[in-house]
């Protein structure tokens, strides 16, 4: 069984830094908004490292904690060898678990942190997630200045770093349970339609989560998927009802919720930061939902395998949150 129940794991706080596009979007209460993709560094990669460092240091400073008070950092990003996270944690002097599951990084970090917090000697954990539009573009697609034409189904990688502080102290949001998903490949090869690649993985994880915990989908006030985008979101709902007979009443997709229509991002936003950005800086601020199931969806695409014409696998992890 890949679902875990947590009895005392809470998200105490979060800290957000975003790029220029996200600052103009529908988000509120962002801690720092950047108006430059370079963030005063020489390269975009170094900018992403600095964003992560700042996210970690700022959440420590806000709670007057030092690195000795934190037992573990769990996090990842989109770069090869999760370079941003590795370099950002170079000087933190805190034990570090680096994870990669593309855009499903955030829920995966919550599940790993939750499992560690079950131990008596672990008390505080920081989860860190980041992505940078231009480093991702450079690595996965075309050169940045090339401006390659995009398709209607393509999504825009967000630029942000988000840190969360998890502990056993009952405050703000309870991490109630989590499900680690399976890798699913439905034969889609189109890198411009990530939503279609990831939707079956999200549906599979939702199904496993509900059957493992013996719940009905109506148990949740909201199903928030990570970055399927507006197109993938529709495919997800259709696939759920056709394959698993799950009729989702209240579903939102973080990718579809992130940007404004006028920002010309076609099917919406994506990236590991997309889900926590929309969750913390939009959905939770509305105070409308009590029980939220977040499903982070990651397209595990490697440019090498794509060039070898092999279809793209995807993974999804789900975490059930309760707003206190």
């Amino acid at each position: 069984m890949a679902s875990l129940k947590f009895s005392n794991v809470y998200i105490n706080d979060n800290w957000t830094i975003t790029g220029p596009m996200e600052s103009d979007s529908k988000l509120k209460k962002i801690d720092i908004k950047l108006d430059d993709y370079y963030f005063d560094e020489k390269t975009f990669e170094q900018a992403e490292i600095r964003m992560q460092k700042m996210a970690i240091n700022s959440i420590l400073a806000r709670h007057k904690l030092s690195s000795k008070d934190i037992d573990l950092i769990v996090g990842g990003d989109l770069l090869n060898q999760i370079a941003a996270s590795n370099y950002a944690n170079n000087a933190t002097n805190i034990p570090f678990v680096g994870i990669y599951s593309a855009c499903a990084t955030f829920p995966e970090s919550l599940i790993i942190a939750g499992s560690f917090l079950k131990n008596d000697n672990v008390n505080k954990i920081i989860g860190i997630t980041s992505c940078h539009n231009l480093t991702a573009e450079k690595q996965f697609r075309y050169p940045i200045e090339y401006g390659s034409p995009r398709t209607q189904t393509s999504t825009w990688t967000s630029t942000a770093a988000i840190s969360v502080l998890l502990s056993k102290k009952k405050k703000n949001i309870k991490v109630e349970s989590g499900t680690i998903g399976k890798i699913i490949d439905m034969g889609i090869k189109d890198t411009n339609n990530m939503g279609a690649i990831m939707a079956p993985a999200a549906a599979q994880t939702l199904y496993e989560h509900l059957s493992d915990l013996n719940r009905n989908v109506d148990y949740y006030d909201l199903i928030l998927t990570g970055d399927l985008g507006c197109v993938g979101g529709e495919i997800f709902k259709e696939y759920c009802s056709k394959t698993y007979n799950i009729k989702i009443k209240k579903h939102l997709d973080a990718g579809c919720e992130l940007y404004l229509k006028s920002q010309n991002v076609y099917a919406g936003g994506s990236g590991p930061s997309c889900l926590p950005l929309v969750l913390f800086n939009k959905i939770l601020l509305q105070k409308k939902y009590k029980r939220i199931l977040i499903i982070g969806t990651g397209s595990l695409h490697s440019p090498v395998m794509v060039n070898q014409k092999i279809s793209i696998p995807a993974i999804a992890h789900a975490v059930s949150l309760e707003v206190l």
């Binding site: 209607q152 189904t153 439905m186 034969g187 889609i188 079956p200 529709e234 495919i235 696939y239 056709k242």
Partner: peptide, 14 residues
């Protein structure tokens, strides 16, 4: 996979 490809084609904007 074939049925899924059909569904994706149907729901993706042209």
């Amino acid at each position: 996979k074939d049925e899924y490809a059909k569904l994706v084609k149907e729901l993706s904007p042209k």
